[in-house]
Design a protein around this nucleic acid. Structure first.
Ligand code: MN
Ligand code: MN
Ligand code: ZN
Ligand code: ZN
Lengths: 144, 144
DNA sequence: AGCATAAACGATAAAAGTTATCGTTTGAGA
DNA sequence: TCTCAAACGATAACTTTTATCGTTTATGCT
């Protein structure tokens, strides 16, 4: 069973043209075993137990690599510096995955339906925030 | 017309029990005039043209104050450090506004949105990311 | 298996974003 | 006008992320 896991990781690397290093492999397996939505520091703390000499920079570099390769994803497009919303009207956002531009869009234009105020686990909903993630018109034209 | 604006800002301050300082007032008016979703640094650059001696710390402190008072909002709950998603199944998130915990929820349990792949302005949608923002069961019990 | 080379690694400095500290200034109520 | 808590500016400190660079390692080719 570790054999199968190893083979599948090797295939992932082969597909994406990246080398199979010891650090990379342990990182991949540790991350796969983690629940929730850890930060790079949390991943670093975990993987350090198995590879004590690993560098935080290596963790960051490989998390980026995994995300670029589609092996894992980012929880949100909105990490980094805080952004302020001055538009008091309830609305949602279109987020361009190329240029990261955030554009307002009303609920009606979005075609949004069905709003539950209670969700499984007893979660009480105050509001919904929807991101339509894709490519803006300007980035579709320019082939960058 | 500047008189009316001033009065409304004074009322906002009165309602929230905060002092009407010169910096605060200019900051409020500059921010209200800004489109999009600026970062604190962008706000700072703008307000500095009108109050050159203002400190970046003052900008940060007042942005927080405005957000806490509900005058303005944050674009997203997900600023700060990047979080990695290892759950490959398509899903959305419940985000607790008290403890900030992020919990997975499937599309079916959520009640979901309509799926338009084209949005106004020629935006091409790749996927939707929905945050149900509210209070988790644990934070409902504890009255903190 | 041995070799060459590009990629990856670890250590750490630097950059970016944010918060804390502290002495000085100012707004609000008496 | 006077008093004092609140707010301000300057800047140090902290957090998160990226860049740099010398060393090590994986890979493809004999
Ligand atoms: Mn908006
Ligand atoms: Mn998730
Ligand atoms: Zn774009
Ligand atoms: Zn909570």
């Amino acid at each position: 069973m570790p054999v199968k896991e190893t083979r599948s990781f090797r295939e992932v690397c082969r597909e994406n043209g990246i080398a199979v290093t010891h650090q990379r492999q342990v990182l991949y397996e540790v991350m796969k075993s983690m629940d929730g939505h850890p930060s790079p520091e949390e991943v670093y703390a975990r993987v350090k137990k198995k590879v004590p000499a690993i560098s935080l920079a290596t963790v960051y570099k490989n998390i980026h690599l995994f995300i670029e390769s589609g092996v894992f994803q980012k929880v949100s497009m909105h990490h980094g510096s805080v952004r302020v919303e001055m538009n008091g009207e309830p609305h949602h956002h279109m987020v361009c995955s190329k240029c990261r531009k955030i554009t307002d869009i009303g609920e009606k234009e979005l075609g949004l339906v069905a709003k539950r105020s209670r969700l499984p686990g007893g979660f009480l909903v105050e509001r919904y925030a929807v991101d339509a993630i894709g490519v803006c018109a300007s980035c579709q034209k320019s082939s960058c």
